[in-house]
């Protein structure tokens, strides 16, 4: 009996360990493959020149700028709405029909394929609002797409702040608003930031939702109304239309590095400026 349970323990440990190992291997294998194929393409010219010849030659400078701008627009728009909604759900309401509807909508939005967002963005922003294929249309579409993620992660972060912090703040004569800003927000900021980093990653990597809304222009964008091609779309078009697989790998490698950098920098900023009391 005793040896049995000990053997079972060992097998369970081995199984769990091997699933984790498997995931790690897959991740490393994909990243390594793309980096090995793509890194040799990356040099100063690749980073600073705009694509020429449909992307066969030249660099990817305009797609880097496009990606960053579209993502920035998406985050700047989605962040206040997402965090605001999360605070509303977590702090300002009791569980009611309205909160259930908001939560259900957010969850449904999260499950919609991104191509549907792309189509909606195309019909609504590009055509109906006449914003055209532009950074703004792409950013707005992505903002709607990442909103549910930001709401969900922020709400969880807010709810995980110990109730006693709120009580202490109220007991010190804090108002509701002061309690949220001074006691709840600083403790929830890490979780909220994680949700935003996740959303940045999704925005940077998104193709379907932006190809219809931001367009696929290779010029360097000059304003928010310029059409642009994000790196992910560029990579997709290069590979799909067989223009240059080498440059596709180069772009993909750059995308991986960019997402990695965004994660590292965002975490550093949070540690440095916001979560210093911990």
């Amino acid at each position: 009996m005793k040896t049995n349970s000990r053997a079972g323990e060992k097998i369970a440990k081995l199984l769990i360990w091997s699933t984790a190992l498997f995931v790690l291997v897959v991740l490393v294998a994909i990243s390594a493959y793309i980096l090995i194929k793509g890194l040799p393409r990356i040099n100063w010219h690749f980073l600073t020149e705009i694509p020429r010849n449909m992307g066969r030659s030249g660099g990817v400078a305009s797609t880097i700028v496009g990606t960053l701008l579209v993502t920035a627009v998406a985050i700047i728009i989605a962040m206040p709405f997402g965090i605001g909604t999360a605070f509303y759900l977590a702090e300002y309401t009791k569980e009611s029909m309205i909160t259930r509807i908001i939560r259900f909508s957010a969850e449904s939005l999260a499950g919609i394929p991104s191509i549907v967002y792309g189509l909606f963005g195309f019909i609504f922003f590009v055509i109906y609002l006449n914003l055209g294929w532009s950074i703004l249309s792409g950013g707005l579409t992505l903002a709607i797409m990442i909103l549910p993620t930001i709401i969900r992660t922020s709400e969880e972060a807010i709810l995980s702040v110990p109730k006693v912090y709120r009580e202490v703040s109220f007991s010190l004569g804090g108002t509701k608003w002061q309690t949220i800003i001074k006691a709840v927000f600083p403790s929830a900021i890490r979780g909220i930031t994680n949700g935003i980093i996740l959303s940045v990653g999704r925005s940077v990597a998104e193709t379907a939702a932006v190809i219809y809304t931001a367009g696929s222009a290779l010029r360097m964008p000059v304003s928010l109304f310029s059409p642009t091609r994000t790196m992910a779309v560029h990579f997709y078009i290069l590979a799909r239309e067989g223009i240059s697989l080498e440059n596709a790998y180069g772009t993909a490698a750059l995308l991986i590095i960019l997402i990695f950098l965004i994660n590292v920098v965002a975490n550093m900023l949070v540690n440095r400026f916001i979560a210093k009391g911990r």
Binding site: P162, V164, Y165, E167, V168, F170, S171, L172, G173, A183, P186, S187, G277, R278
Partner: peptide, 15 residues
Amino acid sequence: RKRVGMVFQKPNPFP
């Protein structure tokens, strides 16, 4: 609540 302060069960300083 400014006039009537409170100290709670567990030590609970803010982080």
